[in-house]
Amino acid sequence: MTLHSTEFSQKIHDPDQPLLKVDGLTKRYGPRIGCADVSFDLYPGEVLGIVGESGSGKSTLLSCLAGHQRADLGRISYDGRDVLGMSETERRRLSRTDWAYVHQNPRDGLRMGVSAGGNVGERLMAVGARHYGDIRGKAVDWLGRVEIAADRIDDRPTAFSGGMQQRLQIARNLVTGPRLVFMDEPTGGLDVSVQARLLDLLRGLVRDLGLSVIIVTHDLAVVRLLAHRLMVMRSGRVVEQGLTDQVLDDPQHAYTQLLVSSVLQV
């Protein structure tokens, strides 16, 4: 397969160096604050959860990190490279090779008019794969990894259930072997049993592939299962951060205490 080998090779990264360094990131919508003065480091293989209520700026933060929106202030460095200072060509290449973005609504992340195989193959073809058999082989392999039967490869996502669509979106994103995955409410809109299977799958993939993940959610159960570290946001600012269990079991900030105590116990 004629792939740009440099783009595909998993660079050996020093596990003691952060993969992503964010410093003083600020995004305003006119006089309103989207998110303000957010700083954190993300290490290879680490899963960072961002929680907060609607309007707390967590989605704004994620889209600034992923380059979908331009931040007003601050610095983002990925693997030693300045993300905000990059040319658009470079950033878009990064976002289809080294990065992945899982949308809350699979319809935003999938091409609904294209078969499952085509959806998974798109990123491969975007980085130069030109051998149909190889692309299809990889697509079958990835559909298997996200528990979609191989005989569904030529079906369109419109024929899939919500949970299958979400798994397909994950396969489509992970096929080029990204190192950093952004997830925006990946389990939103799914019923609890499907959610549980998806979380299980995600946990397995993250562990097996050594992915670094930034996951935005309002569901504390999701971060409890997936995230190593947790950031709590309110009104665009980070009010508390720490190890997930520590933050959830012993919340310090009043808002975090409110958030944790608001969870319904079954």
Binding site: R111, V114, G117, G118, G121, R123, M125, Y132
Partner: peptide
């Protein structure tokens, strides 16, 4: 890459 997705779809179908 998207142009090839179209051709991929042709072959798949």
């Amino acid at each position: 890459g998207l142009m090839h997705v179209k051709l991929y779809e042709d072959i798949a179908r």
